[in-house]
Design a protein around this nucleic acid. Structure first.
Lengths: 133, 133
DNA sequence: TCTAATTCATTGCATTTGCAATTACTTTCA
DNA sequence: TGAAAGTAATTGCAAATGCAATGAATTAGA
């Protein structure tokens, strides 16, 4: 059954290379696009929460977010009640590119599952949702 | 359906962190353990072939393999008929640790699918095999 | 309520990473 | 059969990465 983790590992790495190449022109390589997408969809996560949600090392995430803030894609806000937290939001530039980022993600996904029937797609999604990690 | 690539991305990154932590003591972090496993199971792949099979950048793979050769885990052989190729084999040290590496991979996999029935596991494996990347 | 344990952001630092060459064959095809 | 195109390995280099440590704020427990 170990083929499962080998398969998803290879698929993930391949998709990351593709997507990074696609968005390098926007300064969103090195998985930076991920943070824009997630911050757009769930605004206000704090830094560690965002990092954990995508399973990227917190220090790496921290530096990428800082760069995206410098580049105008994201924006940070101190939390009102907990002084440790810094919450992440998309800035205008981030909101503007979101549709393109998500469309590419959608396209990558469509290609990936293109040999599956609709039922199989739904089943795959369901099964992945039951995985423990 | 894009949830699929998000899920497998997060799972992959999490497993990599775990596995690298586990095998750092052997000098097999940074995904180095992958090369030992694969070279053991399919001896004689040439460098680029090995890299492509796991979807890791060829230059990164090249440097990791070189390090593993230096550390005594792997061994390289020039191809007899094509002078461009260098084929990869495990050395004694690599063969010795393979069982442990594979057992951990198995364990990671078992944990991952622990909430699935046997039928679901088989179905997941089948569906992943149909993905195009 | 005081202290210890926890959690967050952030930095230090050595190592790794990966894109873009370059060089050395090998294959293709006119 | 000879140039052009393709495919390997390898290197250069700037940037990213991630573990370990630090400091500040919060929470838990006695």
């Amino acid at each position: 059954m170990f083929e499962i983790i080998r398969d998803i590992g290879a698929i993930t790495r391949r998709i990351e290379v593709n997507t990074n190449a696609e968005f390098r022109r926007l300064g969103l390589a090195n998985n930076a696009f991920i943070y824009v997408i997630r911050s757009y969809e769930k605004p206000g996560m704090f830094l560690g929460e965002l990092a954990d949600s995508v399973q990227i090392d917190r220090t790496t995430a921290f530096r990428t977010v800082r760069k995206l803030v410098d580049n105008g894609y994201l924006r940070l806000e101190d939390d009102a009640s907990d002084k440790r937290l810094r919450r992440v939001y998309v800035a205008e530039k981030g909101a503007k590119v979101y549709p393109e980022l998500h469309a590419f993600e959608q396209h990558s996904s469509d290609t990936l599952v293109s040999q599956l029937t609709d039922d199989e797609k739904a089943e795959l999604k369901r099964l992945l949702g039951k995985l423990i990690y």
